[in-house]
């Protein structure tokens, strides 16, 4: 870890360990979030994302390792950080009986130079429910209010724990636009998400976490291009003889059928490769459907690294 990097990082987590009784929630996790950048922490359920973020927010104390936020220790300098850091919890944090605008105004009145709460509600599509109590807001509206509360105080760093969970496509896009605007204006954003598309679109840096450890990190481009050729995907009746197909393709090509009837071929995918595949299909009377050549997605990387098993 170079000192230049230290000076730039808004968040530095080094060898963080956090246990809950016998459960090791975070197991030697290290990552940095650069100032002014959007960093996405990606991982399956129970990976330790919330635990890590909440340690950075000062809610939880590390069992070992260090956490520095804007150069401070959130455990002991938490008071100083509260005015500089915006927080969106994964859930809760709002009086069920508080009206939407009222809650946002409260958060605004705690800050020295807040944004205009009414403008922010408008920006997030909450103006029509401004006088609705929190308990009567829909799940997505509740999420957006929590997001608005995190940024209304004009913080220099925001932690957003699953900012788009449960949002409809329009609301998700509005949130993405908002995060892009935060980045444009120099706010550092650290968010967690399960959505690869979101990380790919929004983040300057992605940290993939599984079982409390970082399994990969880098820019979305580095992660998706790392070691990866392109893929060719198609659908066809299940049970094609893949070995025979691969023998008709350049050496080193690989392929698999997963799930049944869905085929993925990887290799040096050239026009000739494509022609060989379609020719092989034609000679076997197979109609390849939905055939496409694509870059490995972050989702592929994610599933490769974290496996396909369901998480507890």
């Amino acid at each position: 870890m170079s000192s230049a990097r230290t000076a730039e990082a808004a968040v530095e987590v080094v060898d963080l360990v956090k246990r809950y009784g016998p459960t090791v929630a975070v197991n030697g996790l290290t990552f940095h979030a650069a100032r002014g950048a959007v960093t996405a922490v990606l991982g399956p359920n129970g990976a330790g994302k919330t635990t890590t973020i909440e340690t950075c927010e000062g809610f939880r104390r590390p069992d070992s390792g260090t956490v520095r936020v804007l150069g401070r220790d959130p455990g002991s300098d938490g008071r100083e950080l509260t005015a500089r850091v915006g927080v969106m919890l994964q859930a809760g944090g709002i009086y069920p009986g508080a009206r939407c605008a009222e809650m946002l105004r409260l958060m605004a009145s705690l800050a020295a130079n807040p944004l205009d709460p009414a403008d922010l509600l408008d920006k997030l599509g909450l103006a029509p429910v401004a006088t609705t109590t929190f308990r009567r807001l829909s799940g997505g509206q509740q999420q957006r209010l929590a997001l608005a509360m995190a940024i209304v105080g004009r913080p220099e760093l925001v932690f957003l724990d699953e900012p788009t969970a449960g949002l409809d496509p329009q609301a998700r896009r509005a949130t993405w636009d908002l995060i892009a605007d935060l980045r444009r204006d120099g706010v550092t954003v650290v968010l967690t998400t399960h959505y690869m598309e979101e990380a790919e679109r929004l983040a300057d840096a992605v940290v993939i976490v599984d079982a409390g450890q970082v399994v990969a990190s880098g820019s979305p481009y580095e992660l998706t291009s790392g070691g990866a050729e392109r893929q060719l995907r198609f659908r066809a009746p299940s049970g094609l003889d893949l070995d025979r197909l691969l023998s008709a393709l350049p050496v080193g090509s690989i392929g698999k059928e997963s799930p049944s009837g869905h085929y993925v071929l990887e290799g040096e995918i050239s026009p000739a490769f494509l022609a060989s595949v379609t020719a092989w299909c034609a000679s076997h009377g197979v109609l390849a459907d939905d055939l496409k050549v694509e870059q490995r997605t972050l989702e592929d990387v994610f599933l490769e690294l974290t496996g396909r098993g369901l998480r507890t």
């Binding site: 509260t82 005015a83 500089r84 009145s109 705690l110 800050a111 020295a112 130079n113 944004l115 408008d122 920006k123 599509g125 940024i151 105080g153 004009r154 913080p155 220099e156 329009q170 896009r173 509005a174 636009d177 908002l178 605007d181 935060l182 444009r184 204006d185 120099g186 706010v187």
Partner: peptide
């Protein structure tokens, strides 16, 4: 959904009195 003017979110942290 409106777009914000650049500088809208420029950090100006601080606590109220």
């Amino acid at each position: 959904m409106t777009t914000t003017a650049p500088g809208t979110f420029t950090p100006q942290p601080g606590r109220a009195p």
